[in-house]
Amino acid sequence: MSDEGKGHWSTYIVVLILSIVFIYPLWILIIYVVQPAYLTFDRIYPAQIPLAFTLQNITQSFKEVDLVGPLERSLEVAFLVGGIALGLGIPAGYGLSKLTSGISNKLIVFLFIINMMPGLVIAIPISIYFLHANLDNTVFGVAFAQELVVLPLSVFISLSGFRSLPRDLEYQARVDGASFSSTFSRILLPMMKVPIMVAFLLAWMTSWDEFTYAVIIAPIVPTDSTFPVTLYNYVSRNLPLESATFALVATIPVIILAIILQKYLKGSYLSGGLVG
């Protein structure tokens, strides 16, 4: 069966409706940003298509509110979260893939339950520990907390990656006299490129989106916070044009990233290891 071919007319209707539903909010965000306020914000019934074009909202927003600072902070946090996810998740996945199944299954269920714990419940006491450790309102504090959201997933991705490698691979390298560490770094890791990349990007994107831990660990007062928390702050200060600009600027790169990541996204990664 070819990937593209003639489909039934009902397929096209479903596709058309769903396409409109999924593109509509992004469309609205774009036309909200690129039109002068008298066509959007000040109208009772704004038009669904752009009637004029301006870049004034964007230039003005960059002048009036801090957009760059929060984005930089978010970037730092996201790279930290991705890095820690690999540092802790890849070895853990390797260990779990080698353990007797009785033990590894128990640990997998344990990690799965961690993944389900409500963020807000955990974030509140963590914020108190971090206050004592001077980690509140810092990039590290936010990253350490957000790591909880992504770590189980990173372990699952790494685990399924290691399990899909040929079994004899490691043994043969050992027979040929390679040491454990060189087998791991020269033979196993290069074959794990895709799972490693997926784990990193998913962690990165999750951190970019994460709000609950960020708003508790680094609320907007007294300094600025990550992009989602700052956006929430602008929205609640009733700055719709600045908020829209900010939202769009922060979103476009991530959409591109999501589209790139698309071909690697398997259902099993996204359901927290529950789906095979």
């Binding site: 596709v15 396409s19 909010p25 989106d209 992009f227 829209a244 939202a247 698309q262």
Partner: peptide, 30 residues
């Protein structure tokens, strides 16, 4: 199923994954 524009549709469907929760919340409030 095979149909014309399948690649475009599957890309389109991914879009919400790339949009932050707070951004989508803000857009829906508009």
């Amino acid at each position: 199923k095979p149909f014309k524009g399948k690649k475009a549709f599957s890309t389109l469907v991914i879009i919400p994954l790339g949009i932050s929760t707070v951004v989508s919340a803000f857009v829906f409030s508009i």
